[in-house]
Amino acid sequence: MTALTRHRLFWPAVVLVLLLVSNVFFAPRFFSITLQDGHLYGSLIDVLRSSTPLVLVALGMTVVIATGGIDLSVGSVMAIAGALACLMIGDLPDQGSVGGVLLAVVAAVGLAAVLGIWNGVLVTVIGIQPIIATLILMVAGRGIAQLLTDGQIINVSSPPFRMIGAGYFLTLPVSVLIVAAVVVAAALLTRRSALGVLVEAVGASPTASRLAGIRARGLTIMAYVFAAVCAAVAGLIFSSNVASADSNAAGNLIELDAILAVVIGGTALTGGRFSLAGSVLGAVLISALDITTYTIGIPAETTLLFKAVVVVVLCLSQSAAFRAVVFRRRTVGASA
């Protein structure tokens, strides 16, 4: 039992379960999942679906943070990817053509990879602090997205593109399947090969790992490319969900949510050891928090306060020092 409560993901998992259960008092059918028009339908599906962009962004952020860096530009990369894809699809003579949509998706992801290389080169080759290096693209990237869309919301009506964010395959949301595939692939790559250990080594000590013969520079650039590609896919899901590209709203402040998700998941911001599962859990928790505020009817003005309280409680529960104080009080109280 103590082994279970000591696990670093125990407390986030408890908070997630508590959040979900608390919904039942306000929406009795919260846990019911039914079949609607040939796909699964229910609040839990909503939680999963709406968490998909954040899970992806948090996944990329985890790897970057593991190398001792941070990527603030993910939100802007999301906006660029969504804008470019919608722009290209809007120009298609037939928006329903699968090939055209595929080309747009590949172009968006490809551009994101270039932006990832840009971030990585700034950090490794030029040696700028990661927080500053990625801040450049965070600010400029949003500008590029607005330039692409001319500051407008671009609407598309393309059934193949809709599939990405709002479609279903074998009764399951396509976006969830995409994210699951990325998570599994990332987990296999980092845990079934030496890649994960190498990344952790670079994060723990770039110099030591370089002296040990690890190509720290290449690994770090790869981490930023991975983060950017994840963000691009997140941006595609985000814009596909509402069939439009909104370069102001897409991914706005998502970098902060992603960093929070990573921290909730138990990855230290100083780099080194990381937990992909933890970040996924953290991201799902944050999106469950959103849905909960809607379900239990927290007034719009106090939503942010409510979220802050939950996050503070969560962080306190994760702190060993805080738990020690609370438990000592209890034992003292019991013996007296």
Partner: peptide, 25 residues
């Protein structure tokens, strides 16, 4: 029966309405 902010955007409007539909049949 329910009133929430959708931030004037489509994405939030959709997400909040999804939650409303499940909470209030």
């Amino acid at each position: 029966i329910a009133s929430q902010t959708g931030q004037f955007t489509r994405t939030d409007g959709k997400e909040v309405m999804e939650a409303f539909l499940k909470t209030y049949p």
